[in-house]
Amino acid sequence: MSSHSHVEGQLPHEPERATLEGRNKITGFWLFLGGETVLFGTLFAAYLTLRGQVMDGPTPNELFDFALVALATALLLTSSLTSVFALQAMHKHNVKGLMGWLIVTLLLGAAFLGLEIYEFNHYVHLGHTFAASAFSTSFYTLVGFHGAHVAFGLLWVILILLQLKKRGLNTTTAPKVYVFGMYWHFIDVVWVFIFTVVYLMGKVG
């Protein structure tokens, strides 16, 4: 094994794959996302089963504020793009660009989360509380699980930014950035499904 030499000096083009640890991290994270897919799949299934059960509460159609959700969607999709820019900067070993784009991603994600909190708050005032109906419970659980993933991602990227600032780009930090990027895209894809299944189908269905 590569024993004593910790990569000094020149970083390879894809520093995230330079070490076995890095490659393991990426393989494992792909698999983890496979598991996450089942997790969200089950949440979607539960939501689809229960979304008709609104009891006395507002229906999806009455409830959803389309402009707000569209804005949130735009923010999150853009943040996925900026995370790609961050990765491109990383491959050019441009630490400043990398950190800059990660910060933009962070801000966009935070704005998305802010909108979601505002949205939930708004719904609760319309009588759409967690305990109101099977529809409300499954709605908050599905969308809330996604929101929690976003929140976790924000904390994570802050931690990565701090590490980049302190230690710079190396074969330990690079896989972290890469894996975070995968995570962030995944969250984005899930949101696209939420947007379609929950909001669009809620408006027309």
């Binding site: 609104v54 099977a134 499954s138």
Partner: peptide, 10 residues
């Protein structure tokens, strides 16, 4: 919550 509570649509 009401996932499995039939009285609230579960």
């Amino acid at each position: 919550g009401n996932f499995f509570d039939p009285s609230a649509g579960g």
